[in-house]
Write a protein that binds this DNA or RNA. Sequence first.
RNA 1: GCCGGCGUAGCUCAGUGGUAGAGCAACUGAUUCGUAAUCAGUAGGUCAACGGUUCAAAUCCGUUCGUCGGCUCCA
Length: 616
Amino acid sequence: MPIVAKTNVRSERDERLYRIRHSAAHLMAEAVQALFPGTKLAFGPPIDDGFYYDFDTEQTFNEDDLKAIEKKMEELRKKKAEFVCIPVSKAEALKRFTEMGEKLKAEHVETLEDGKITLYQDGDFIDLCAGPHVENTGEIKHFKIMHSSGSYWRGDEKRERLQRIYGTAWESRDELKAYLKRLEEAKKRDHRVLGRELSLVDFPELAGPGLPFYLPKGAHILQELKNWMWKLHEQGGYGHLDKVYQPLNTPHILKTDAWHTSGHLENYRDAMFMVYSLDELESGMIGGDNESGKEGLGNYGLKPMNCPGHVMLYNVGTKSYRDMPVRFFEFGTVYRYERAGVLHGLLRVRSFTQDDAHIFCTPEQYEAEIEGVFDFCCHIWDTFGFDYHVALKTRGEKSMGSDAVWEMAEAGLRRVLERRAPGKYYVEEGDAAFYGPKIDFVVSDSLGRNWQGSTIQLDFNLPERFGMEYVDDHGERQRPVMIHRAILGSFERFFGLLIEEFGGAFPLWLAPEQVRVLPITDDQNEYAQQVCAELKHAGLLATVDDTSEKLGKKIRSGKTQKIPYLVVVGAQEMESNTITVESYFDGKLEDIRTVNTLEARMRLEIDNMVARRREE
RNA sequence: GCCGGCGUAGCUCAGUGGUAGAGCAACUGAUUCGUAAUCAGUAGGUCAACGGUUCAAAUCCGUUCGUCGGCUCCA
């Protein structure tokens, strides 16, 4: 069960690193204030692998500035100034920071409890801080300033714009070097790099940012994933033969009225692409706007979600309790105007295809349905051996519906989690969708950044808005409960995560080129074609490398392209009607000498969906 | 959208005011070779775009676009 629990328990080593990094943040702040007088401080916490500090300043930091800051830190640490803890009263702290002109620090003091406020001083530098720190600045030895970026005070884009500087710090020189090496290695697994090197995807600049185009090899993998998921949905092949889905197919544009009814126009308009006709433009219908309505937006909107379409199809005909639960799925392509700064390769795009489904059921059924979806999610992530976190996200400030309904929904999700992932899930308060609580599956990319994969959301909002009903066993009209879920999340994001997880060396069943035949000299070209034809007959994706290169070059090229199997045929093989096989993971396979045995091995690997990783 | 970095050939990069370069990839030819790069040749660029400064701009300035790292937001 590779659900990975999120733990707050810190090991002794974590504790030491925490102190070093926290202290390094202070040292950096001191250096920055020394080099750029007048710079005010915000927060400067330790984080995974390092630390950062936010500065309130007109100054922006370029690379030379960062180098200068690092140099200054080196200079300051040599003073071995002792970290001293100074408890102060709230009034005292307020007075001090106000006098120092540290407006944000003073603001933060306001939120703290009197009697629990401490300052830490090292040399001439003093900062509001709960600690703990290392003994003296001399202990901060192995650090590096990484990069700078912008941020906002308290993460609020309406508040002060701050300059953030990131650094990393470790216990030893070797650890620091290993960390920097790790970053280098991670870059090689970056799906944007591999996507280009392996000719999987492209983002044509002319087409527009965030719009992924699949090249033949990428399109092949995408289609394999779709075939696999389609089958699982229709046949319940994820361990629930009774919980099968019915396919739908819905258009990409809906009338603006539909987005008004669904609430997207009110709650999601910033992310929507609207569709205008020339008639509308010419008649001046476009542009005039009012806050909540649809005026001036044109007659159609490109779908950012599939749910309204599915709801409309639920509403075709009268549903009885005997029909419930209704499970509709669609590989629906949606379009969202994501803000320019958030786009990220395949992991965050503007057009993507969700493996989307909506389950409509009675209040008695939804818990079992969620359990089924949960198992579906585990099944797909486990198929590839991903590590993932599971999070329960509860009601936030912006939400609709009664407390009772929310409590019932959250309790239901919690019961499923207690049964399926006891002690392993974590709760993020206030992170629910505005219409209901949800369970999210979170997966990391090669650099450890977290991305939401699967999501299971309860929705009491749309059934209301679209007037959905079913007739119960007393002949009474009832409102169904709606579950919105995506298992892969989106094919794009999943593909990106898959590329990084496997470093481009895909499981055989997905590999766009499964086996390549390498004749040693031109004399074996014909024999190589024969072998290739046999492999193709067996349903394998096979090619021949008949370039007039030496074997070493052909091997190198095959390995670089991460082809799972390379078949070498020279004079010896042709003579004895055999082959020699080189596997991406296992090197030379001495026991496989014929096309038939290779076929058998590959067939087994494909049927079992074997998912291997390169050992680092 | 905000803050900062970057944009030279398909890819990786050199070129800091005076005639656009290298390696790899591609193509052509030679080579016919036994497990990670054979040799030679050819072709390929309005130096992201637009505007400005200058006798002269890849180079300096401005704007826009794209991209990278963050912030915010999200599948």
